[in-house]
Design a protein around this nucleic acid. Structure first.
Length: 724
DNA sequence: GGCATGTGTATTTTT
DNA sequence: TACACATGCC
């Protein structure tokens, strides 16, 4: 295999050739070694911007050209977008058709796919529902309420916290006490009630055919060690490749070990300096211990960075130099430049917004489209003020991270209605739907659900005729033998009955079509989009009563219908929407909008794996980066440092780090009290020396334009007199 | 008993 | 804004 000895900047993109040989010519020796590695485990330690994606895509193409059937290659990535991107690139060489047969996706999405096929081996009825985070939290809440914790002398952990604790415990595979002690010390007193809640939660999931995100992984792992099926599943692939391995958790590593039974060729790629998901129980141990866990593994290290100019890399490296543990790589770049990254000190957040907007427009005029520019921040709401300003100036943008479309209450309502059709035993969805109806609260909802047999917990079932091997579907029950409901809700309830019956093909007052009313039952007659329409006309009147500004929300529902229109299968639609939700509301924007040039706003977490010509990092103040929630322990502080490193290394040519001097603490009120911020602790003097320092909108800025004048704050000025 | 309404309180990152 | 909890009304 020919490997080009030297490479130039041409290696950044896929330029000429359309064979693997041409590609290999453009790779550096280390990349080439990784791509052409033969059989056996392979660890690729790849620093930021070292052409990791390219290498992985190229390896897949190489394997296919060597004769490995594409459908026997499994490519696990962090987001589905990343998988699609890689398979797309690989398609340049092998042809789209061929590349499209590669199994690609997140661990969760692949788990789902495998479980749909082999789940029966685990006693997992087909037609299971995947719970997203807030569904899971709702179920947690349901159990908590039921157990009735009368001891409310103190505030109990909120439902999302309960779920975090549970999830962390499960995905790190550590006992409750330890989890609480290390990560949730303020909840330690409630360990006992939590045990009961978790017990109930797990049981309810099992009984209701519900899998949360962690379950998808757990069940996949279990599949691997199941006697006969384990062989089949792990024997299904010749090669497994895993991207972003530093952000996998112990269960995911366990899955790989399980798959290793039959599949000898496991290849993982990652960078210990970029691990930023420990809150999800990800651990760098996975990558560090890989050679131990997979004996005979070969290790290849990629150190040449093709993305950033040297000064940006120098500043990024300087940030990491103070890390508690040193990292093994030494990144270097051939891309010389005299332009240092810029540290911009602003008066306050307002000033920061102004300068960011101004710089973005300047770069745009210099010919850098918005597509190649991004603004990164620590948490979703950090961009709130900037979003307003961008809109005011008509700068189009898309935001990644933060609140998602599917998390909106009204979207969840719609989905709940569809889910009940798909899986009539889905308790949370029933509960959600019933509470929408006037005059029905938790108690009545629970009574109705009992009547319908939504939760058929096996031991409690006293019925002789409906053994749980083949229980009567709650939907059948609803049609044939409706429960009594309070007068106030009679009308709404009747409409609910009608719409559900229409959609699932049962007849109100008719007889149950004998036999097997399993959740899997085919949609009889009504297409998915017709079902969505029906549900919608049922829901809209309720919706208009509940929500204050239905207009805006109504548009979301339109968009949901649009997405659904792209699907034939209801089940496929539902799982896709929970496993790979549209990232932003504008993801759903109509085609013409997508053509437009737009700026990217993103949380640093969501920016992983991406790159832009110009990058702005905002709120580089202590308390923001690092977030003051993370400064409790040293590990947290170290992780935030890596977070800043990840953010900085996204930039190719220009990096701006913005630091607002003053913050108003209007957390819950509109007071105008404020305090002065500290520069992020990671930006030490040594690091700052590698930046060009500028100020924006402060007193000595003689070039006052309208914006900066508006940013001036008389109160702030005088208050300095007594604030020293 | 059960539901609707009001009030006070927060901690981030995501499959 | 959303959620946990307390009170008031049927």
């Amino acid at each position: 295999m020919p490997c080009g000895g030297s490479i130039g900047t041409a290696a950044i993109g896929v330029t000429g050739g359309d064979t693997v040989a041409d590609w290999l010519d453009e790779l550096n020796p280390a990349q080439c070694e990784a791509v052409t590695h033969g059989d056996g485990p392979l660890l690729i330690v790849a620093g930021a911007g070292t052409g990791k994606t390219r290498t992985l895509a190229c390896r897949v193409a190489h394997l296919i050209q060597e004769g490995v059937p594409p459908e026997r290659i499994l490519l696990l990535t962090f987001t589905r977008r990343a998988a699609a991107e890689m398979i797309h690139r690989c398609g340049h060489v092998t042809g789209r058709q061929t590349a499209g047969q590669v199994w690609g996706g997140t661990f969760h999405a692949v788990a789902n796919r495998l479980l749909r096929v082999y789940g029966r081996a685990l006693d997992l009825a087909d037609g299971f529902t995947v719970l997203d985070q807030s569904d899971a939290a709702d179920l947690m809440n349901l159990v908590r309420t039921e157990l009735g914790f009368a001891k409310r002398k103190r505030r109990f952990a909120r439902k999302s916290t309960l779920l975090s604790i549970y999830s962390r415990m499960v995905s790190a595979d550590r006992p409750l006490e330890e989890t609480l002690e290390t990560h949730f010390p303020w909840c330690q007193d409630d360990a006992e009630p939590m045990r009961q809640i978790f017990e109930g939660y797990a049981r309810r999931k099992r009984d209701g055919r519900l899998l949360d995100y962690d379950d998808l992984l757990l069940y996949w792992s279990a599949l691997c060690v199941t006697p006969k099926v384990g062989e089949v599943v792990s024997g299904r692939f010749d090669h497994i490749l895993v991207d972003e391995y530093q952000d996998t958790n112990p269960i995911q590593a366990e899955i790989l070990r399980g798959m290793h039974r039959r599949c000898r060729n496991i290849c993982v790629v990652g960078d210990d300096a970029q691990s930023i998901y420990s809150f999800r129980a990800a651990t760098v141990r996975n990558i560090l211990d890989f050679p131990k866990q997979f004996p005979g593994a070969r290790t290849v290290t990629l150190e040449q960075n093709y993305r950033s100019i040297q000064p940006i890399l120098a500043a990024s490296n300087a940030v990491m130099e103070q890390a508690r543990e040193r990292y093994t790589k030494d990144l270097f770049s051939d891309r010389r430049s005299d332009q240092k990254p810029i540290l911009m000190t602003c008066v306050d957040e307002r000033g920061q917004c102004d300068v960011v907007c101004t710089l973005i427009l300047e770069h745009l005029e210099q010919g850098i489209p918005l597509m190649n520019q991004a603004v990164l921040f620590r948490t979703g709401h950090h961009s709130a003020m900037l979003e307003v300003e961008l809109s005011r100036r008509n700068i189009p943008f898309r935001k990644f991270g933060g609140l998602k479309f599917v998390e909106a209450a009204h979207i969840k309502d719609m989905l709940a209605l569809l889910r009940v059709l798909e899986n009539p035993f889905d308790e949370i969805s029933w509960f959600r739907i019933l509470l929408l109806l006037d005059g029905i609260g938790p108690r009545t909802a629970a009574r109705i659900m009992d009547h319908l047999g939504v939760r058929q917990s096996p031991p409690a079932s006293n019925g002789v005729d409906d053994v749980d091997a083949n229980p009567v579907s709650p939907l059948q029950r609803l049609a044939v033998d409706p429960p009594t409901v309070p007068p106030a809700s009679r009308e709404h309830f009747g409409r609910l009955r009608t719409v559900l019956s229409e959609c699932c093909g049962t007849r109100v007052n008719g007889k149950a079509d004998n036999g097997k009313p399993r959740p899997k039952q085919r949609q009889q007659g009504l297409s998915l989009s017709t079902q969505v329409d029906r549900i919608r006309s049922f829901y809209e009147p309720i919706f208009e009563r509940i929500y204050e500004n239905p207009q805006i929300r109504l548009r979301d529902i339109d968009q949901l219908s649009q997405i659904a229109a792209g699907y034939r299968s209801r089940s496929r639609f539902l799982t896709d929407v929970t496993l790979d939700p549209p990232e932003t509301t504008s993801d759903l924007a109509q085609a013409p909008f997508l053509e437009e040039d737009y700026l990217t706003l993103s949380t640093i977490h969501s920016a992983k794996g991406c790159e832009w010509t110009v990058v702005h990092i905002i709120h580089a103040a202590d308390g923001m980066i690092p977030s003051d929630m993370a400064v409790g322990d040293e590990d947290g502080i170290e992780e935030e440092r890596r977070l800043l490193y990840v953010a900085m290394t996204r930039a190719k040519d220009s990096l701006y780090v913005h630091f607002p001097l003053r913050y108003y603490h209007r957390r819950f009120d509109m007071g105008d009290g404020h305090g002065y911020a500290q520069r992020s602790r990671y930006l030490t003097d040594a690091v700052c020396a590698l930046f060009e320092q500028r100020t924006a909108g402060v007193d000595d800025d003689l070039d006052l334009d309208e914006e900066t004048t508006r940013a001036a704050d008389p109160y702030g000025r005088v208050s300095r007199l007594w604030k020293a």
